[in-house]
Design a protein around this nucleic acid. Structure first.
Length: 601
RNA sequence: GGCCUCGUAGUUCAAUGGAUAGAAUAGAAGUUUCCUAAACUUUUGAUAUGGGUUCGAUUCCCGUCGAGGCUACCA
C-alpha cells in the first residue's frame, strides 16, 4: 500500500521509544482510510495495545503525536476507536508523481525472463469431437490471462495445451461421418471443421438413442440396450482398430482431426490466445506405465489378484485408485502421471499450473498426492487452477440437450452487438471501414472477456445470452471508452502550446494537490499491489476489478476537472501526468486480460 | 451415504478478521456553452439460518437448510 513501508518503519522506531517495548513491521495492520474519515492511510492499533500496555485509543494518540512531531511524513492524524488515521504531507504526494515515479515499471515488452526456470501453464485442453463452447472460453481466457500476469511479474512462462485427440468420443464422430456423411468436407459444406465434426458427434448420439429405444421395445433393460446398441459396438470396434494401428481408421482419424484443428485455430485466433507448445494425447497416452512399474517395484503401489495396479490413499483420507487395468492398459491418471514427469524432465519447471474445471478437483488432488508418494519433490509445485462452471439462465449447459452456447456464434454475436450500439451512438464519423471493423472486434471481445474474467474463478457464474452483455457499468467497453477518452485529452493537450512536454515534468512549487487528484494517485499507486495479488492468487478478477475502479475514478476526476487551462500550466501538467499514468495502467492491466484498448472511439 | 465448492440488494458481481458490507444494473429524480454523455450527481434496496472463537466475523470453527460438483478398470 502507498506509504505503508515508509510509515511502518517510522512506527516501529517510535513505538519502541514511546512505549519501551518492541514491535515488528509485520505486526502492523494498515488499510486505506475510508472516505468518510480524514486521512490517507490507517493503522489498526487494536492488536498493538497489548504490547504497549495502553488502551487502543491512547496507543493511537501517542503514536500519532510522535509521528507528527518527529517525522516529515505526517501532516495530521486522528484517532477513532482503535484506528489511527494518518494524513500524509502534500510534498510526499507530489513526490509520488515526480518524474522518476512511474507505476508501470514492469516489462512492457512481455519478454520472458529466460534465466528463470519456466512456469508451465496448461490450459484449453479441448476434445476433438466438438467445437468449443462458453465453458472453454472461460478456460482459455483464464489460462491466457494468468500466463500474461505471471509474465508481467517476471516469470518465464510456457503456455501449453494438451489436445484430447483419441478415445471413444472421436470414434463416435468418425463412425457417424462414415455411415451418414456422404463424404462431406469443410470445403464442400463451407462449415468450420470443428463444427462439421461436432455435427456428426451429435448425429451419432441421436441415432444411438434411436437404437436404444428400439432395443428396449424388444425387451432389453436400459443397461443392456446401451451396451448392445449396434452403433456403440461399432464405435468400440473402431477404437480397437485405432489402437491396433489400422491404416484406414488412422487415416480417417487424421483427416477429421485436421479439420478440427483448423477450426480451433480460427477460434483461438479470434480469442487472441496462443500456445508455446501443443501436446497430443495420442502421443502421450502410453506414458506413465513405466512410472507405475517403478512405483510397484519400490512397494509404493500394489497389484491386485487380477493383475490391476492400485495406490492406496486411505491414510490421506482418500480412497484406493486404479493406475493400470488388469489387461495392462493405462487410464487417465496413468497418463497424467506420465506427462507430469515428462514435462519436468523436459523443462525443469518452477511451477506447473493446470487450468482445468473444478469437476476434476478430486483427480488433481489424487494426482499430486501420488507424485508426492512416488518421491518427486516437485510435486509441491503443481497447482490446479480450478474454475467453476458458467451457467445459463436455464441452468447448466448440456451438450446432449443442445443448451450449449457455441463459442464462435457467441463471439460473432458480441461483435454484431458492438457494431449496432456504436452505430446507434454515432461514434464512427472519422473511421474508415477497416478501422470500424477493428473497433467492433475490440469492443465485442472486450465485453466478453471482461465479463468472464471479472468473476472469481472459484465461483459459479451466470451468463445470459439473450441480454447479451452490457456495454455500460462494470464492463470492458466502459474501460475501453475511458482509455479512448484519456487519449483524446492527451491529443488535445499535445496540440496546445506549452503543454507538449508534460511527460517529462517536474512540479516547481506545486503544492496544492486537490482531493480528487489525491484519490486518483491513490488508485494509481495501488496498481502494483493489485498485480502482485492477481499473480499470487492466479485470479485475473482482481486485475479486472482494479481496472474498473481506475476507470471509474478517472471519470469522476475528469467530471470535476474537465478543462485544460493553458494559463495554469502547472495545474494542468499535474493532471496530464495523472491522465497519462491512468491510460498506461489501464492499457497494461487490460492487456493482461487479453483485451485491446482503442486509441479513439 | 462419503468428500469438495458455493449461498451477499430484484438481478450480476466486490469486500488480506476491521470502522456505517462496496459497485454495476434495474426503479425514482437530475446534469450537456466544456479535451468524448458508452459520462456524471442524488435516491430506494442485501450477508440463507442457529450456535461458537474475540476488542471486532460476510470472512475462521460446528450444526441446519439450499444449489452444484466428485465419488468409473471414461478422458
Amino acid at each position: 500500500m502507498l506509504f505503508e513501508t515508509l510509515i511502518a518503519e517510522k512506527v516501529t522506531f517510535h513505538f519502541s521509544r514511546v512505549f519501551n517495548s518492541e514491535i515488528t513491521p509485520d505486526q502492523l495492520v494498515f488499510q486505506p482510510t475510508r472516505k468518510e474519515f480524514a486521512g490517507d492511510i490507517t493503522l489498526v492499533v487494536f492488536g498493538m495495545s497489548k504490547i504497549s500496555g495502553k488502551s487502543p485509543e491512547v496507543t493511537g494518540q501517542m503514536l500519532g503525536e510522535a509521528l507528527m512531531s518527529e517525522t516529515d511524513l505526517v501532516s495530521d492524524f486522528n484517532v477513532i476507536k482503535g484506528f489511527l488515521n494518518i494524513s500524509i504531507c502534500n510534498d510526499q504526494w507530489i513526490k509520488q508523481l515526480n518524474s522518476d515515479y512511474n507505476p508501470v515499471t514492469l516489462d512492457e515488452t512481455g519478454t520472458p525472463n529466460q534465466s528463470r526456470s519456466p512456469v508451465l501453464v496448461e490450459y484449453s485442453s479441448p476434445n476433438t469431437n466438438k467445437p468449443l463452447h462458453l465453458g472453454h472460453i472461460r478456460n482459455n481466457l483464464l489460462g491466457y490471462s494468468v500466463s500474461e500476469i505471471l509474465k508481467a511479474t517476471g516469470n518465464n512462462v510456457m503456455k501449453v495445451n494438451i489436445v484430447n485427440d483419441r478415445g471413444i468420443h472421436i470414434c463416435k464422430s468418425m463412425l457417424a461421418w462414415k455411415k451418414f456423411g456422404n463424404e462431406e468436407t469443410p470445403e464442400s459444406t463451407g462449415m468450420k471443421g470443428d463444427h462439421l465434426v461436432g455435427k456428426y458427434y451429435v448425429l451419432f448420439d441421436a441415432k444411438y438413442k434411436d437404437q436404444i429405444k428400439e432395443l428396449k421395445a424388444t425387451g432389453y433393460s436400459d443397461e443392456e440396450a446401451e451396451k448392445n446398441a449396434p452403433l456403440m459396438l461399432e464405435a468400440q470396434e473402431m477404437l480397437q482398430k485405432w489402437e491396433a494401428g489400422d491404416l484406414e481408421t488412422l487415416s480417417l482419424w487424421s483427416t477429421m482431426n485436421q479439420w478440427v484443428y483448423a477450426g480451433f485455430d480460427v477460434t483461438y485466433r479470434k480469442l487472441g490466445v496462443d500456445f508455446d507448445k501443443i501436446y497430443y494425447e495420442s502421443e502421450t497416452y502410453l506414458l506413465g506405465k513405466s512410472i507405475v512399474e517403478e512405483g510397484l517395484s519400490k512397494g509404493i503401489l500394489y497389484k491386485k489378484a487380477d493383475g490391476s495396479v492400485w495406490v492406496n490413499l486411505q491414510s490421506e483420507g482418500l480412497d484406493e485408485k486404479l493406475l493400470l487395468r488388469a489387461d495392462g492398459t493405462s487410464v487417465y491418471m496413468t497418463q497424467d502421471l506420465g506427462t507430469a514427469v515428462m514435462r519436468h524432465n523436459e523443462f525443469k519447471f518452477d511451477k506447473l499450473i493446470y487450468v482445468v474445471g473444478n469437476e476434476q478437483d478430486y483427480h488433481f488432488k489424487v494426482l499430486f498426492l501420488i507424485l508426492k508418494k512416488l518421491g518427486y519433490e516437485w510435486a509441491d509445485r503443481l497447482f490446479h487452477l480450478s474454475y467453476n462452471m458458467v451457467d445459463l439462465p436455464s441452468g447448466k449447459m448440456k451438450s446432449r440437450e443442445g443448451t450449449v452456447v457455441d463459442a464462435d456464434e457467441l463471439i460473432d454475436n458480441m461483435i454484431v452487438e458492438a457494431e449496432k450500439l456504436t452505430v446507434e451512438l454515432g461514434k464512427l464519423e472519422d473511421f474508415n471501414s477497416q478501422e470500424a471493423h477493428e473497433l467492433f472486434n475490440m469492443l465485442g471481445l472486450g465485453a466478453l472477456k471482461y465479463f468472464l474474467l471479472r468473476v472469481d474463478p472459484e465461483k459459479r457464474m451466470l451468463f445470459n445470452p439473450n441480454e447479451s452483455i452490457d456495454f455500460n457499468g462494470n464492463t470492458g467497453p466502459f474501460i475501453q471508452y475511458t482509455h479512448a477518452r484519456i487519449q483524446s485529452v492527451l491529443r488535445k493537450a499535445a496540440s496546445l502550446p506549452g503543454l507538449k512536454n508534460y511527460r517529462a515534468f517536474d512540479l516547481p512549487g506545486y503544492t496544492g494537490i486537490l482531493p480528487k487528484e489525491k484519490e486518483l494517485v491513490k488508485v494509481l499507486v495501488r496498481y502494483r499491489e493489485a498485480l502482485e495479488d492477481a499473480a499470487d492468487k492466479l485470479a485475473p478478477s482482481i486485475l479486472a476489478n482494479y481496472a474498473y475502479e481506475l476507470a471509474r475514478a478517472f471519470n469522476q476526476f475528469y467530471h470535476e476537472h474537465p478543462i485544460i487551462d493553458p494559463d495554469k500550466a502547472t495545474t494542468s501538467e499535474f493532471r496530464l501526468v495523472l491522465c497519462d499514468q491512468c491510460a498506461r495502467v489501464i492499457a497494461q492491466s487490460m492487456k493482461m486480460m487479453g483485451i485491446d484498448v482503442p486509441q479513439r472511439m
